[in-house]
Computed example of a mutant assay.
Amino acid sequence: MANIIIRKYHRLLSIVIFIPLILMTITGTISPILQVLQLESAADFVRKLYSGRLFFGSAYFIYTFISGLGLLGLLITGLDLLKLPKQVNKIQKIFKF
């Protein structure tokens, strides 16, 4: 029963954390490309989007802190879910499936 609850939290947390991480990945990749192409206004916009200043003002610290906490939560719940196959193997040995 506890594994079902942890699995639900892990799934929800992964969906929520995916959005800012994919945003940071894409904008972090595009920003240097735009600088090389000398598209400064577009590069400034992408850098603001990357740093979180576009949505949150100057809350880059909060943006990264929340992402870090989310990744830590995913690590903890993921490690807890790794115990599941070992428990299944013990049950199979007991009942000889």
Rank of each mutant, 00 (worst) to 15 (best):
F61Y: 15
F55A: 14
I15Q: 15
Y60K: 02
K83F: 10
T29F: 01
F56T: 14
S14D: 09
F56D: 08
D80Y: 02
L75P: 14
P85H: 15
P32D: 11
I26Q: 02
G78D: 08
I15E: 11
G78F: 09
S67V: 10
I19L: 11
D44N: 08
S41E: 15
L39T: 00
L37Y: 05
E40D: 15
L82Q: 04
S31T: 10
A43N: 06
I26A: 05
Q87K: 15
I15V: 13
P85M: 08
L54Y: 10
A59T: 06
G52N: 00
L49Q: 08
Q87I: 09
L34N: 04
I33A: 13
F18P: 08
R53I: 02
K86V: 09
Y50D: 04
I17M: 11
Q35R: 00
L84F: 15
I15C: 05
L54I: 13
Y50F: 04
L49P: 12
Y50G: 05
Y63A: 14
T29V: 06
I19H: 09
I76N: 00
K86H: 13
I66E: 05
T77I: 00
F55I: 14
I33T: 10
L82W: 04
L82C: 10
A59F: 03
T25L: 14
I19C: 09
I62G: 03
G57P: 04
L54S: 06
I26G: 06
F56Y: 07
I22K: 00
R47I: 04
Q87R: 15
S41G: 07
I66G: 00
T25S: 04
V88K: 08
L74D: 00
L21E: 12
E40I: 06
F55R: 13
V16T: 04
T64R: 07
R47A: 01
P32Y: 05
V46D: 02
V46I: 14
Q38E: 05
V36M: 06
